[in-house]
Deep mutational scan, measured.
Amino acid sequence: EVHFESHGEEQAMRVVKMLKKRNLTVEVKVENNKWIITAK
C-alpha cells in the first residue's frame, strides 16, 4: 500500500494517473487542504 500527500490538485492528478497505469486501486481524499492518495 502506498500513501502520497500532495498540496495541489494538479500534482495529485498526475500521481493518480501514474498509479492507475500500474493497475493499482487508487483512493483520493482531501483533508486539511492536503490531497491524500492511497494506492493498493
Results as ranks from 00 to 15, higher is better:
Val26Thr: 02
Met18Pro: 02
Lys29Cys: 11
Arg22Asp: 06
Met18Asp: 05
Thr25Ile: 14
Val15Met: 12
Asn32Ile: 04
Ile37Gly: 00
Arg22His: 14
Val30Asn: 06
Gln11Trp: 13
Val26Gly: 00
Val26Ala: 02
Lys40Ile: 11
Val16Tyr: 07
Ile36Val: 07
Val26Asp: 00
Met13Leu: 09
Lys20Pro: 01
Asn32Glu: 08
Ala39Glu: 00
Val26Trp: 03
Ile37Asp: 00
Lys17Thr: 09
Gln11His: 12
Glu5Gln: 07
Arg14Gly: 04
Phe4Trp: 11
Val15Arg: 02
Met18Glu: 08
Glu10Pro: 05
Ala12Ile: 08
Glu9Lys: 13
Asn33Asp: 11
Glu5Arg: 06
Glu10Gly: 06
Glu5Pro: 03
Val28Asn: 00
Met18Phe: 11
Glu31Met: 10
Glu27Val: 12
Asn23His: 13
Glu1Ser: 11
Phe4Val: 06
Met18Cys: 13
Thr25Asn: 10
Glu27Trp: 11
Val16Phe: 04
Lys34Asn: 05
Met13Ile: 08
Met13Pro: 01
Val28Ser: 01
Glu9Trp: 15
Val30Gly: 01
Lys29Tyr: 10
Val26Pro: 03
Lys20Phe: 11
Leu19Asn: 02
Ser6Trp: 09
Lys40Ser: 12
Met13Val: 04
Val15Asn: 01
Lys21Gln: 10
Lys40Trp: 15
Val28Tyr: 07
Gly8Trp: 14
Thr38Asn: 04
Val30Leu: 09
Val28Lys: 00
Lys20Trp: 08
Phe4Tyr: 13
Lys21Tyr: 08
Lys20Glu: 12
Lys21Ala: 12
Glu31Trp: 05
Met13Asp: 04
Gly8Leu: 14
Thr25Leu: 12
Val30Glu: 05
Leu19Asp: 01
Arg14Trp: 12
Ile37Tyr: 00
Ala12Cys: 15
Glu1Ile: 13
Leu19Ile: 02
Trp35Glu: 01
Val16Gln: 02
Trp35Val: 05
Ile37Val: 10
Thr25Ser: 10
His3Arg: 14
Ser6Lys: 08
Gln11Glu: 14
Glu31Lys: 06
Arg14Phe: 09
Glu27Cys: 13
Thr25His: 13
Leu19Lys: 02
His7Ser: 12
Val16Gly: 01
Gln11Thr: 08
Val30Gln: 08
Val15His: 03
His3Ala: 07
Thr38Trp: 05
Lys21Arg: 09
Glu10Val: 10
Gln11Arg: 07
Glu9Gly: 06
Asn32Gln: 08
His3Asp: 03
Glu9Met: 12
Lys17Ile: 15
Val16Lys: 02
His3Ser: 09
Glu1Leu: 13
Glu9Thr: 05
Lys17Gly: 08
Arg22Ile: 11
Asn33Glu: 07
Leu19His: 02
Val26Ser: 00
Ile37Ala: 00
Glu10Asp: 08
Gly8Phe: 14
Arg14Tyr: 09
Glu5Gly: 05
Lys40His: 12
His7Glu: 13
Lys29Ile: 09
Trp35Thr: 01
Glu1Lys: 10
Glu5Phe: 10
Asn33Trp: 05
Trp35Cys: 03
His7Ile: 10
Glu5Leu: 11
Lys17Ser: 11
Glu9Asn: 04
Glu5Thr: 11
Asn23Ser: 06
Glu5Cys: 15
Ile36Gln: 03
Ile37Glu: 00
Val30Trp: 13
Phe4Gln: 02
Thr38Pro: 00
Glu27Ala: 07
